[in-house]
Amino acid sequence: MDLVLTIILDGLIYASWLFIVALGLTLVFGVLRILNFAHGGIYALGSYAAVIVTPFFAGFGLPDWFSIVSMFIAAMAVAIVLAPLIERGLLRFFYGRDEVLILLITYSVFLMLEDATKLIFGVNPYYLFEPRNVLGNVEIGSLYYVGYDLALGGLAVICGAGVWFGLRRTRIGKVTLAVIAEPEVAQAMGVNIARIYLLAFGVGVFLAALGGAFTAPLISVQPGNSVSVIIVSFAVVIIGGLGSIPGAAVGALIVGLARSFAVYEFPEAEIFIIYLVMVAVLIFRPEGLFTPVKARKI
């Protein structure tokens, strides 16, 4: 029984992390129809921003808990700098083009981000210790868990609920939904589509950077952290259904639990369990779990 509990708990922690990263990806796809490869690069940049910004605020003598706040500030800073640069400066010229072509554009952005990050920060590792000490340790069963890791679950819920609420309950959110449904009609009704696109992309960048920022205390922040993130988060949103927020949540849960189960029971399968799940889901639900069937164009 203890083992089942551990598997579920570990799976949930991993799923929370996955969801935060995948949420931005699925949102950007939902609104802009772009599968953003640079997401992983932005994630890595979010880690760097967190290790720079957090000590900066700590330097003012602010209490330790402020380090959690400063990670939001770091992610916001990344979003404010990068989102206009990438969306307005590049992506907007390619709207309506082939999805795969845009995927390749974001891939080249990813390559550039990778080296730009290296040129700015060098290859030496950075660390961030404070945030993980804020919430102390918790004993569950016979195991210690770090409060911070468990709190990632809370963060995932906040992010998911925030985006959900923003889309369904605010004016701009409802306008965004209209743009998703019928961009041309929305434009004809006087919606400034460019602003909606920039905003959605900005939120996507923010969420990627936030995922990176909150991962920073768990890892050594150095080159090469971006690649593995992209592929697992791609898998999550594909499983859930591209553009679907509940889909991303369910996808993250499935992948998180599957991986956790594999570590305990089939450690040799861990390397491809995610892809097996993805193949299995796509065979039965060709467009992912949560995508409504679209009418075919005539």
């Binding site: 080249s108 390559l111 080296d115």
Partner: peptide, 14 residues
């Protein structure tokens, strides 16, 4: 920084 140059090249071609 070859990735940077490769990225720019890819972008220019597209």
């Amino acid at each position: 920084s070859w990735q940077l140059f490769l990225g720019i090249f890819l972008l220019l071609v597209i």
